[in-house]
Nucleic acid binder design. Sequence first.
DNA 1: AAATACAGGACGAGATCCAA
DNA 2: TTGGATCTCGTCCTGTATTT
Length: 377
Amino acid sequence: MPNDIHEYRRDTFGIQRNDGEDVECREPINELDQASFQALVLDQITRIQEQNELIKTRVIQLEKEQEDFYLSTSRRLDNGFREVEKCTKEMSSIKEVFKEIVGIMTGDRVQFLDHSSENVTSEEAQAISSSQLLAENFANHRRRQFNDYIHDRRVLERDECPSTLEVKREEDAAWRQDCTTSQQSSFQGHEPDQDLEYSNSHIPTNYRLNRAIHTVTDVAREYFEGLRGQPSVMYLERRYGTHWRSKPSERTFFAKRMQIINKINDIKENPERYGMPPGISRKQAIRVVENVRLGNNSFYGHSTRMTLNQLYIYLTKKMDKTEDYNLTLKEHGKPRRDLLSRERLKDSNNTSATQTTEPGIDERSRAGETNHGESNS
DNA sequence: AAATACAGGACGAGATCCAA
DNA sequence: TTGGATCTCGTCCTGTATTT
């Protein structure tokens, strides 16, 4: 091998051997070396090319991996951001619900409208004021109230002008149907468990007195006869006792209505106490109380067309007098609101007139005139 | 002069308390 | 448990002040 190297060096670079021997006549050997050298170089080049190819594919592979990694990371980041956004939305919804629950429980729900005295930021206040949830709740509440009133009006109107002359039975099928199916109309505002309660015990704890009634006649009709498709209150009282009005709102409302009913019954049973002829019918007694409401009264010193609530106050405060009770309407009263605003207008006119006509009048004489005016009125 | 905002009173409905 | 008395709260209406 060392000899071969010497040969290789000499052939290539024209180096002579150290011993000084001539190197001519060696052509075949050189040709052989050159061929092997070329083969070696080719081999090396091939290897380098292979390596290059390998590196190139490796780089492409790395690029692809990098790209995949980037894409998957981006996708995951996107998903993450979406999740965060979703969580934020849910959190704000939960926050709203909690605020509403706390508001309902404490009765301070409306205080959310006043942001000055609360630990609520202006952003939160804005969010609440534009809250879809609260707005929907409020809209539902208003819709429910409106539906109540519409239903009450319909029941009342149907009752006022019955299309047929059929006789209404207390166990009316329509009412039965109402009790079980038409919960959103007549027997609204109760929980589903009340349905169960009703179906189990057959006590109509969800009967609701008609709020659209404004006259004594209708109050009496609802109590004694029952509105169309519904039982009479008297029937409910006799059959179910106080159970049908277990809700506090119905209890209160019923108590107010009963003041009027009791007065009707009292007039019928003791007509002489009210200056009425003996043997007065219930219909006449109702007429007498209706006349009291319409104008035969001195509600706060004036003949007033009272609302049922005012009539209730008039009766419970014992403001009624014997002369109020009459079969004929002596005077058509005006609503108290109208009377009050007219009085206020009159007062303001009087004060302005005294001020303009007598600007120099002293305080003492002015006071005297005012007292005189009051005594006249 | 008309439109708008605001304050205050009247009212109704329901809740709560209390005596029977 | 019930009914009556009273209180509270929200809504509606009206009058007045302010703005356009």
